[in-house]
Amino acid sequence: MTAVSVEGLTKIFNQGRSDEVLALSDVDLTVGDGEFVSLIGPSGCGKSTLLRLIADLIEPTTGSVTVAGKPAAQARRDQEYGIAFQQAGLFEWRTVCRNVELPLELRGVSKAERRSKAEQMLELVGLADFAGHYPGQLSGGMQQRVAIARALAVQPPLLLMDEPFGALDEMTRERLQSELLGICATTGSSVVFVTHSISEAVFLSDRVVVMSARPGRITASIEVKLPSRDEVGRQAPVYFEKITEVRQALRS
């Protein structure tokens, strides 16, 4: 089964008005089960729009989105995916632990069960000691990790991430990249990951999907097979070859 299947997707914002924008034009995309796919492209090429369409946060103008074999709206109602944005978007009036619990709470999971689940997720992102803190007491990087823990809490078969590490410093970013890969390896989740960093896309992905702007469309899809996803992988010749390949695809 495929995690995500997008066919003939077109999105026009403000259709019929003077400020009409053709954000996406005739996009096809398939994400296999357990596959890690990055979307990369110049800003304004429709990466976030594509992700929001998959998440059923906005409606397509034409075309169809299927997630876990269901129409996108049904998949959203069934919470088939977890999502993380560039801003952590934590609820500042809830403790770290209760933030992670929220999606479980809304699913009607019992109190004891969601507490243990949340603690497990916080353990995973290395924040077990901060369960009782409020988001305002954490650094930006820690908040982002809480947001990722929250996205993972329902153990969704699919993770959607929109530049989740965009606002972080290089050190934190690299550590979180490794953490994310580790988590996906354990949970077997499929991932659609939006980024504007070429090296990040190549390091994380099984496949890098390159997009171009005006109108937004997919121009290339580059398979990446690194020998390993660690420091050795970052030094491998393939890594640099793929970076060059993606860069060229972005230029043309």
Partner: peptide, 14 residues
């Protein structure tokens, strides 16, 4: 309302 909060709650089908 923070727009991110709004979108999140939508993804939770709240």
């Amino acid at each position: 309302v923070n727009p991110v909060h709004q979108e999140l709650m939508r993804t939770y089908a709240a």
